[in-house]
Write a protein that binds this DNA or RNA. Sequence first.
DNA 1: GACTGGATTTCGAGT
DNA 2: ACTCGAAGTCCAGTC
Lengths: 239, 239
Amino acid sequence: MTAVETLTYPDPADALDLASRATDRDALVTLVGTCTVEYEGRAASSLGLGDRHVMLKPDGAALVHTDEGQQPVNWQPPGCEHSVSVDDGSLVVRSTRSSPEESLEVVFEMVAHAAAFDVTDSKDLALTGTEADLKDRILDEPALVESGFTPLATERETPAGAVDIYGEDAEGRTTVLELKRRRVGPDAVGQLGRYVDALKRDLHAETEVRGILVAPSVTDRARQLLAEKGLEFVSLEPP
Amino acid sequence: MTAVETLTYPDPADALDLASRATDRDALVTLVGTCTVEYEGRAASSLGLGDRHVMLKPDGAALVHTDEGQQPVNWQPPGCEHSVSVDDGSLVVRSTRSSPEESLEVVFEMVAHAAAFDVTDSKDLALTGTEADLKDRILDEPALVESGFTPLATERETPAGAVDIYGEDAEGRTTVLELKRRRVGPDAVGQLGRYVDALKRDLHAETEVRGILVAPSVTDRARQLLAEKGLEFVSLEPP
DNA sequence: GACTGGATTTCGAGT
DNA sequence: ACTCGAAGTCCAGTC
């Protein structure tokens, strides 16, 4: 973090100067003020006057935050081109991209604060408790699923997609596991069902294929669906 | 937007003063600086030293942004309690909630900028191009799906969940539509299949039930699944 | 509170 | 570029 540049209640011209220089040198820009926001692209939206926090990232991402919610009220993904200008005496931020064609326009009636930050980040997030961790746990100790279960492959391809864990049970029957790190609904059952059906077809006819959903818990509807499709459930959490 | 309060390269004590007063009066707080981040809750994560932008919203949401990506590298959902303190000479931000028990801790090695904003927002976002718009389009002009199609209900409940549009075709056959605003994969076919199966069961035995997926387009795998399940596809986009 | 499905989902991996 | 599925998904609506 080398430089910080800020302006409080700047003129549009001064805010423009700060913002355009900052985006040119790939700094992080924040603008807080009263503005309207228009978006058009995959969908289209219009947002009336209000106080918002606008962040322009050097990778092309743009975020418009209100005082509520974890999600931005409007945004643009990384890879966009930011442009800042003064139109009719108002500071205007445009962020656009092609494929798909999308544009975001923020028009400030008033800028309360403008800032530029030269940030650097190694970004080495270590996350645990994911589905991958659950997979490792099972591969380490397959008996957690069922005594005699033997994993043979992970991410095994089927015509319906890749199976999380592919193996066989104590009797040598083909057994596929679909893993979920948290409580699951009907969608996960559908997924497992597709894999089992595809494998049955692939391995030709009479081969019995067991499908086991491994997750901390399931909803009622999911349990019912499992029963209908002759699939099984084993309760297990990520470590 | 009444007040803006900012500090550049503040002492931890001054930053603490600004931040704690701001959270007390439900202002939006931003802190930019070099920090580490620890999270524990549904999962757990650890993030080493780097420059980040931290936002604390009055509704309890917390966001930690790096210079890259649309998504925050760490966060806390609305409803959390923010607390700011100075520990061992470092500014520390904690954001916690219960059910589920989750905590986020940001420890600043250096604060480059601290700010508080008293923002207000009516938040009247008008969004178009959604699935709801596609639904309206079909209800306005059912022939877009198929000549003779007659919608009878929307969100009709089945044992497998609510069907987007329920109706009958020119021959009086029960027909259910699953709508998607954009290109779809196998999951949407599974959804439609579940509704059709549930209705067949519900309406008792021999009743034929048609299932039509309405979306701009489908992937190959989805098309294959549709064929397997005897379901249909109509290409249509939101207005 | 739990459940269900949409979302301008985003993100990453594989092809 | 496209497909597919995970995600600490978030979020609204409903029960």
